Simulated assay, not measured.
Amino acid sequence: MKYLWRLLPISFIVLLSGCGVENLSALDPQGPVAEMQFSLIQLSLYIMIFVLVVVFAIYIFVIFKFRERPGDTHIPKQVHGNRTLEFIWTTIPILLLLMLAIPNVMDTFTLANVEVEQMEATEDGEEGTDYVRVQVTAHQFWWEFDYPDYEITAGQDMYIPTDTRIIIELLASDVQHSFWVPALAGKQDNVPGIQNDMWFEAPNEGVYMGKCTELCGPSHWLMDFKVIAVDPDTFETWATNMAEPPSHVTEPEETVAADGRTVFEQSCISCHAVGAEGGNIGPDLTNFGEREVIAGYLEYDMDNLEAWLRDTQEYKPGNEMPSFNAEAINDEEMEALLDYLDSLKVLEE
């Protein structure tokens, strides 16, 4: 019983293995970049397993072959200075390291060759059809996605077309962050004053979870985002409607939502944009009603949205968004504001 504590690490590993989030794993690669990186993981794993098996086999063989036996006092043959053995155990590690180094170096140059890939994509067809360029700016503690070729900005949710090269330009507005969508590509840092580049493709439609992986403040662990891959036609519709939102987004006819628009203009528009109107201090809200989460991680429903607006520091400590108590926005105004925010959808009316 006294040795059972040694099983605790294994128990924790088994327990944590069930804590994964869908599409937040590098072990389920989607697209050429993730598959390339996964193949390197597999290669490293196979080489390590090979080394482990060989070393343990030699270890067990030596234990049994040269174990002390009753009455046996002879000294085993000494191999110190044996050039053949020294050549073997020097050459084999070199070969194994080369097996790791060559594909790693080749894939590193392939992944880093963003400009060439962009030029090749442009030569294949019209700009904006064979590749999409996205400037990803990290803030404490949210994400901004600019599409320069479409002249639109999105917040928290990054929409991309499937089977299209996505060229990512990574920036940071305050401290260092790190962009990671494990199912699509490895992580890359967002560094203030420096632009890092990367690219990936999503072959299948779906929602791919992303996270910040650089400690950036008290709410670092809540700095999640989504990459939403849709078919190219749906993406073009989304981009068009983000640039010129439907009338129900900017001028709602329904009475409660219209009142909510007024509250929004009085309390929120200086920081958040809807369509062409508003500030850029906080995330763009043009398609807010299509999100699945609030503040990056809260389940999307009106109760959570009101709770977030009433006390933002409770749910995301250290963020710069002010809270709106009953004196700032009364219950009737809050209900109208929630109705308006929920109506902000560009892909469905």
Rank of each mutant, 00 (worst) to 15 (best):
Y208M: 02
V79F: 14
E349Q: 13
S44K: 04
R291P: 00
D107Y: 07
D28S: 13
L7R: 01
H220Q: 10
K187D: 14
A172W: 03
Y315E: 07
V346W: 00
S39E: 11
F66P: 01
E348P: 01
L215R: 07
V191Q: 10
R69P: 08
G128A: 09
V136H: 00
L15R: 06
Y159W: 01
F56Y: 05
Y59G: 12
S343C: 07
Q156G: 02
I49M: 14
A121P: 12
L171E: 14
E327D: 14
D301I: 01
I92T: 08
P76E: 07
E244G: 00
E335D: 15
M223C: 14
N241M: 05
S247G: 02
A26E: 12
M321P: 02
K187Y: 11
V230R: 03
I269L: 05
G20N: 12
T137D: 04
E327N: 12
E299S: 11
C212K: 02
T240F: 00
D331L: 05
V227R: 11
D130P: 01
T250L: 01
F87S: 13
P246D: 03
E68S: 12
G217A: 09
L40S: 06
F66W: 13
G279A: 10
P76C: 08
R83I: 14
L298G: 07
N82G: 10
H139R: 15
S178H: 09
D28C: 03
D174A: 13
P29Q: 11
K226G: 01
K2P: 00
E349M: 08
I168W: 07
Y131P: 04
D157N: 15
C19D: 02
Y150C: 00
V54H: 02
V53I: 14
F66R: 07
S270M: 06
D124V: 12
